[in-house]
């Protein structure tokens, strides 16, 4: 994890995340569903997910915490997934896992800036106005930039979330099932 915090550029971060095969996301929207859910994984087979296996994938092979946070653990760069099971439908989660660029809501966008001396920062966009940019950088620092001090700035072309088409149907169903089990904490 520490190696990620030292990443400076967008491309490095994206490459790192892809290499880690994290699950993660830029997930949002939707409603309901619960554990043990059936998804039409990879478009051609039904599979019933197991949330405990999904959590293991999330914590292990998926390295989802590289970008995401659940109940206070993990990165703040991607959306906090603590209550994603209340906010999204299983079908939406599956789509985000397979096609992460299909839908990225405004508050999950990434932005890059390059100062006039060539230093580049990429992170989660928090606010963009006529004169300034505020973001959470890859080291989870709150950063503010004045546009007139920048050589270049703009939205990231793609979501940092890699596609998880490499997961098999069962693994995908397990991960979705785990995510759907996340309903938030009563008293966070």
């Amino acid at each position: 994890m520490s190696s990620l915090w030292s990443l400076a550029t967008w491309s490095e971060m994206r490459a790192h995340v892809r290499a880690a095969m994290a699950c993660g996301v830029m997930l949002v929207c939707g409603v309901s569903a619960s554990a043990g859910i059936t998804v039409l994984a990879q478009g051609n087979s039904d599979a019933t997910g197991d949330p405990s296996r999904g959590k293991a994938l999330y914590d292990g092979k998926g390295a989802c915490a590289t970008c995401h946070r659940v109940n206070g653990l993990g990165s703040r760069l991607g959306p906090d997934l603590s209550d994603v099971g209340q906010l999204r439908r299983a079908v939406d989660l599956e789509r985000s896992l397979l096609e992460p660029d299909a839908e990225v809501l405004g508050n999950n966008r990434f932005y890059h800036v390059t100062t006039k001396d060539g230093a580049t920062t990429t992170g989660r966009l928090l606010n963009l106005d006529t004169f300034t940019v505020q973001m959470l950088d890859s080291k989870e620092r709150l950063r503010s930039f004045v546009k007139s001090d920048l050589r270049d700035h703009g939205f990231a072309d793609k979501s940092p979330m890699p596609s998880y088409k490499t997961l098999n149907a069962q693994e995908l169903a397990d991960v979705v099932s785990y995510l759907m089990s996340l309903k938030g904490q009563a008293n966070p």
């Binding site: 405004g106 508050n107 928090l126 606010n127 963009l128 106005d129 505020q134 939205f155």
Partner: peptide
């Protein structure tokens, strides 16, 4: 309120 819209939005 925060703004994260793109120009085409």
């Amino acid at each position: 309120t925060p703004n994260t819209k793109k120009e085409d939005e």
